[in-house]
């Protein structure tokens, strides 16, 4: 318990809280764009950029690495849409290819950097599974600022996002450029992914985007409530996961955050007020009873009419 009270841990907790909230909000957009797995492809695609940025800059600077990751993830997004639009290959195949080929390139470069570099590159491996505890104060500030930017972008343009996601034609009719909205969407998605890589790692980053939004779907049908709930679930998972992973020595943060998120998901799935399994079962029973009652009334009525 002492460890949780140390100022450093509190900063890390704050950053995973903000990260979880930002990822939860963007995850809702991705969910309704039906592009949940895109985040998986893009987070893997960010790895070569992280390594190249490190190799060029020479030391571990989070901001430089975020820029590298963003460039490489955007390149991946560009390739996916290019392959999809100019050949007969479907989007999911394109995503799978970009994901694995970019990741392979990243591992190639990582091996070279680890072999040739000095001693201070040991933290690079942490980008695969995430090591939130290795963050220094400056990294936390960077993450906080970028996470808040993402949340603000979603919040101030809330109406526009809603139109863009649910009625793209109408949005275009109102003069909302879908090209611009798509651009901004990809930008915030990549931004969230790259700030999350340090804490959660490239492999599990997509879980932070996907799971909270799916959980939130079980509680509400309103887009606004869903975004708020998803942010809450994401933030809670971030905090709980970080706290649990701090118990063990050298435990990776990412898997624990994902596990916490999954627990929230199962709870929502069972007890969610909108589509939860328990609620559904109860509703089904009530309906059955009423239907049965209705039928017996009808049949008795018919019997009375018949001579």
């Amino acid at each position: 318990m002492n460890m949780l009270l140390s100022p450093n841990t509190q900063w890390v907790l704050l950053s995973t809280l903000i990260l979880g909230m930002a990822a939860g909000m963007i995850g809702c957009l991705a969910y309704w764009k039906r592009q949940s797995l895109m985040s998986d492809a893009l987070s893997h695609a960010a790895l070569p950029g992280v390594v190249i940025a490190f190799a060029l800059y020479g030391s571990k600077n989070l901001l430089v690495m975020i820029v590298g990751a963003a460039v490489s993830a955007l390149l991946g997004a560009f390739f996916i849409s290019w392959i999809r639009s100019s050949s007969r290959i479907k989007e999911d195949t394109a995503m799978g290819m970009i994901l694995s080929v970019f990741f392979g390139l990243g591992i190639m470069l990582l091996t070279i950097v680890n072999r040739t570099g000095g001693g201070n590159q040991s933290g690079l491996d942490g980008f695969i599974f995430g090591q939130a505890a290795s963050m220094v104060r400056k990294d936390v500030y960077t993450m906080l600022i970028l996470g808040l930017i993402v949340m603000v972008v979603v919040w101030i343009a809330f109406k526009e996002w809603k139109l863009f996601l649910f009625d793209a034609d109408f949005a275009q009719g109102l003069g909302l450029s879908s090209r611009w909205m798509n651009g901004i969407y990809t930008f915030v998605l990549v931004l969230v992914i790259v700030i999350g890589i340090q804490a959660v790692g490239v492999i599990l980053m997509s879980a932070l985007l996907i799971i909270p939004s799916v959980s939130a779907r079980y509680w509400s049908s309103s887009f606004k409530q869903m975004i708020i709930l998803s942010a809450l679930f994401g933030g809670a998972a971030g905090v709980i996961g970080t706290m649990v992973s701090a118990i063990g020595n050298g435990w990776p943060t990412g898997p624990f955050i994902v596990a916490a998120s999954s627990c929230l998901f199962f709870t929502s799935m069972l007890f969610g007020s909108e589509k939860g399994l328990v609620v559904k079962a109860v509703q089904l029973r009530i309906q059955r009873k009423e239907a049965a009652k209705g039928w017996t009334q009808q049949t008795t009525a018919m019997k009375e009419v018949q001579p």
């Binding site: 599990l204 879980a207 799971i211 994902v258 596990a259």
Partner: peptide, 11 residues
């Protein structure tokens, strides 16, 4: 797919 594989992999 996203929920299932990330959860099982994390475990």
């Amino acid at each position: 797919i996203g929920v299932v594989f990330t959860t099982l992999f994390a475990i």
